[in-house]
């Protein structure tokens, strides 16, 4: 019987006489963890207290403009711009990714060129470029190149309103990044999956849609969630071409009332609220496309934080 005991337990057994059932395990007490937690909480409380008492923050101004009509108009523009730019980015990005992976060397080179150009120049430059594109081409025409045949003809200035210019700039820039994410997703799928699908008589397009892309989604979604949250904040850049997004309108207000800090607080609160809301769909999508993997049953991060903190502190106390 003694032979089946762990060597350490045998040593303890000698100390405790012949009653191993009375042995009690005492976990290490992490006094340092407690001290650090208390200090950090105190520092945060101090900062919040000083902010609350600071007269220069003008909480009344913040409260007033947080729900002002002009700010809501800006919010609506910011939201549709985010959604539309991400839609353009994802659709065009997927196309560019498929081109990049195609056996056609011309298509592959063109897609590399696209990514190189749009990822390699500052977004701010691209936004202003699209806003002033009329200086480059007065008219946009669709026709047959090198002939005089023209099907449609637009005046560039009336076509490229600030909103459209903003959408083009954000969407094309996003497409460059999205294409790399989609490409990585497609390449992460085992080639054996395509072979298996082909051996069942599935054609290339069906294989891509039913077998490869659903598996690639697992790799694509987390960075695309990042991109979406990034895009929501990046739309603030289009304030330089007065596209009437949230940031444009915030700037319009503080240009008149000089309440810069309170207005920036309004902007920050709204951006935070929206990015927080966006994390929900991402977690849902990740669970949906994680089907068939052990990680599918993952706990949402916020709940994990709360149960983690509560769990850790209580087990410490019990220990």
């Amino acid at each position: 019987m003694a032979a089946s005991l762990h060597p350490a337990a045998q040593v303890r057994r000698a100390d405790a006489g012949d009653h191993p059932g009375q042995l009690r395990a005492v976990p290490v007490r992490h006094w340092g963890r407690w001290a650090a937690a208390v200090l950090a909480a105190l520092a945060l409380a101090g900062l919040l207290g000083s902010l609350a008492k600071n007269q220069n923050l003008h909480w009344d101004v913040v409260g007033h403009y947080l729900v002002a009509g002009l700010i809501f108009d800006g919010l609506v523009t910011t939201l549709w711009l985010t959604v539309a730019a991400m839609a353009v980015g994802l659709a065009l990005g997927t196309l560019v990714a498929v081109m990049r992976l195609s056996a056609n060397p011309v298509l592959a080179a063109l897609s590399s060129l696209f990514v190189w150009a749009f990822r390699g120049t500052p977004l701010l430059v691209q936004i202003i470029f699209w806003a002033y594109a009329a200086a480059l081409y007065k008219h946009v025409m669709i026709g047959i190149p090198f002939t005089t045949v023209t099907f449609v003809r637009f005046d560039t200035n009336s076509l490229l309103t600030p909103s459209i210019a903003a959408l083009l700039a954000l969407g094309l820039n996003e497409a460059a990044y999205a294409s790399e994410i989609v490409r990585a997703g497609i390449q992460s799928v085992d080639p054996g999956q395509q072979e298996a699908a082909h051996s069942l008589g599935m054609k290339p397009a069906l294989t891509m849609r039913r077998i490869v892309l659903p598996q690639a989604m697992k790799v694509i979604i987390p960075p695309m969630g990042n991109e979406t949250i990034n895009m929501l904040k990046t739309t603030a850049y289009v304030s330089v071409i007065a596209a009437h997004d949230l940031m444009s309108n915030i700037q319009d207000v503080y240009a008149q009332n000089y309440q810069v800090i309170p207005m920036l607080v309004v902007a920050a609160l709204w951006y935070l609220a929206l990015t927080t809301l966006l994390s929900g769909p991402q977690a849902w999508l990740e669970r949906r496309y994680g089907r068939g993997t052990a990680r599918a049953a993952q706990v949402p991060p916020l709940r994990r934080l709360f149960t983690g903190v509560a769990g850790r502190l209580t087990t410490e106390r019990k220990g």
């Binding site: 054996g192 999956q193 298996a196 082909h198 008589g201 089907r291 068939g292």
Partner: peptide, 18 residues
């Protein structure tokens, strides 16, 4: 290929499907 079944060394089942 529809009429030719194939079984692979590494199974190659579709992991996202039951």
């Amino acid at each position: 290929r529809r009429e030719i079944g194939m079984v692979f060394q590494r199974f190659n089942l579709f992991p996202h499907l039951t």
